[in-house]
């Protein structure tokens, strides 16, 4: 048993080494390149503070895109996840829905963004559509897994009354999974803000547009302003979502108390 474990760990390490050689990932290059960080740091210290106003509005646009994308995406995902749950539907319903969701998930958001830039043109709308697609594929999977994990006892007890499926969903499935669903929505919003920040790379709006353009022209100081704004925003949103989680979600799950 122990020897077998050692063998598996050894094989995994060997795999990492062999694959690194195969893709030319040489740690020596990293060490040699370290002085280059100095160049970046030097450039960054020349922060152009007049850009903070522009960065603020660009960040606001990013947050708006992420918000719209999350809300619309969740609104589409929730009914789909109810149809994809195996404990609520027959096979001929959940199999095609699951296949559709899996297909949606195969594209990362940046590829969706490229696709929508081609369809609706450059700008934030393409980014919003990309976020919606990604959110649907991703959150619907999390949600149908949550719905499938709903306690069988209340489903059984209420099902025995002979209520309709819609009533079962409204009175058992949603209340029983609400705190998990809400937690997942907060998570995807958090995640979508970070994703939207890079969609500008392909011209789909948001703060990433400025970052990529300044980097292209080696104006690291200007790019740094925008990156700092992203960093601060993500930290704030992270903090807010932790507070929301503690207040509304953790408490309702098994009545747990959080030490503050």
């Amino acid at each position: 048993m122990n020897q077998k474990n050692n063998l598996i760990i050894g094989l995994i390490i060997a795999g990492v080494v062999v694959m690194s050689a195969n893709i030319d990932a040489d740690p020596r290059d990293f060490v040699e390149g370290l002085p280059n960080i100095g160049i970046i740091l030097e450039e960054i210290t020349e922060v152009d503070s007049s850009l903070f106003v522009t960065a603020f509005w660009a960040m606001l646009e990013t947050i708006e895109m992420a918000f719209i994308g999350t809300v619309v995406g969740v609104a589409i995902a929730l009914p789909l996840s109810l149809l994809a749950a195996r404990n609520l539907n027959r096979k001929f319903v959940y199999v095609p829905i699951r296949a559709l969701l899996a297909a949606t998930r195969t594209f990362p958001s940046i590829l969706w963004a490229i696709l929508f830039v081609i369809i609706v043109g450059l700008g934030p709308f393409a980014g919003v559509l990309a976020i919606i697609m990604y959110t649907v594929g991703f959150i619907a999977k999390l949600q149908y897994e949550t719905i499938e994990a709903v306690d069988a006892d209340p489903m059984d007890a209420v099902g025995a009354i002979g209520v309709s499926k819609l009533q079962l969903i409204r009175f058992v499935v949603l209340p029983e999974s609400a705190s998990h669903l809400l937690s997942q929505i907060l998570y995807i919003f958090d995640y979508n803000i970070r994703q939207t920040s890079i969609l500008g790379l392909v011209g789909a709006g948001g703060i990433g547009f400025y970052i990529i353009n300044y980097i292209k022209f080696f104006e690291y100081g200007k790019a740094a302003v925008f990156m700092v704004v992203v960093l601060v925003t993500v930290l704030i949103i992270d903090w807010v979502s932790v507070r929301i989680r503690d207040k509304y979600i953790v408490k309702s799950q098994r009545g747990m108390q959080v030490k503050t």
Binding site: D153, A157, A160, I161, G162, V172, P175, E176
Partner: peptide, 19 residues
Amino acid sequence: SLMHKIGYIPQNLGLIKNS
């Protein structure tokens, strides 16, 4: 319609905890 008239209380009660 008869199921509507049968009250079933399973061993674990089957209540909705967050409601």
